[in-house]
Design a protein around this nucleic acid. Structure first.
Lengths: 178, 178
DNA sequence: CTGCCCATGTAAATGGTTACATGATTGA
DNA sequence: TCAATCATGTAACCATTTACATGGGCAG
């Protein structure tokens, strides 16, 4: 569901190809949703069948032909409806915590090594978010409120990785003092 | 992968049925992984085929017969190996943020309503975590270090929902002052 | 007599990943 | 001549959800 509407919102800003969408997912959308190109092309087909978008074939001479997708009236309507809908909190699935839950079978240094590796990955991710701060995504915003919303999305990621980082530091410290 | 090892760790503590495992997932494991009974039964079959566990049929007279699963030497070995393995950060998928990204098509009060509803769900979840604090799961721990690890798992959830709550409050405030 | 607990499963569908597959143009 | 960019897709697989399915015992 989310993927469909994540895509539809962009197509509503301007007509786009699957290729364009993939680039957007890799640059900015990745801060709140991820997708591969195979998923994007499949989802575009479904959206076309549902009448949310329509296809325009664009013939090019020196570049491969492409399919530009435009939003339909039905598409706009459905998007507006969807953004209002209450959703459930996602099911919790935290692989590192599963590992920690049975980590007592390891010597302390191996548990700590595992946590240090996790910490490194969180730090990398956090850097990526913070470098985005004066950001691609805010400069495309159509209104000040949209700009505020997009900045809030980025902040959500930053605060959540910061909290995770603090937790992992505390946990490492706790293990060392045990 | 995680599901398999989440289950295997419990079977390592004591022989269990699929039904037992489901109850554990619903009571404590849900703080770091979730699963339905259909998934659990299927995964038990796979684990049996892989030789990580073996099945013992238990005939009961006044209750339905059941299948108790025991861990094998291979199971223990694989579990120890798995808990050490570095893992990737999970792909980001945050449905509310997708909604926020296109919420500029709504009037302010509707965006705020959406966020208030989300806030309520976070608060409920946080309450659930905090009520677990003098907890089922710590009293089953086999060593002080295991107890520490299990408490850390719970703290991870608490800190992450607290951070989310702070973010949603800030975002609501920001929208009101815009 | 109703509904919960015990205890097991299967089938279909959804959503996502990974691998396979093609091919022209352009810049280093 | 090598790699990247543009541009599209399919197929197989894996993980998860939801719905379908059964049935005895026991407490209120």
């Amino acid at each position: 569901m989310s993927l469909k509407y994540a895509m539809l919102g962009f197509i509503d800003m301007m007509p786009l190809t699957g290729y364009d969408l993939k680039k957007m997912f890799d640059s900015s959308v990745k801060y709140y949703w991820t997708a591969t190109h195979s998923q994007i092309y499949r989802t575009l087909d479904e959206m076309k069948k549902e009448g949310l978008i329509k296809e325009e074939l664009v013939h090019q001479t020196d570049l491969p032909n492409k399919k530009l997708y435009h939003i339909t009236a039905k598409g706009k309507e459905q998007l507006t409806k969807w953004v209002k809908e209450p959703t459930e909190l996602p099911p919790v699935r935290h692989e590192l915590l599963v590992q920690l839950s049975w980590a007592d079978r390891l010597p302390n240094n191996q548990i700590i090594a595992r946590l240090e590796n996790y910490k490194l990955k969180i730090e990398e991710r956090l850097n990526m978010y913070e470098q985005e701060n004066n950001n691609k995504f805010a400069h495309m915003s159509r209104t000040p409120r949209e700009r505020f919303l997009w900045e809030s999305i980025l902040k959500n990621g930053i605060m959540s990785y910061k909290a995770e980082l603090k937790w992992v530091n505390d946990t490492i410290k706790g293990l060392k003092n045990l």
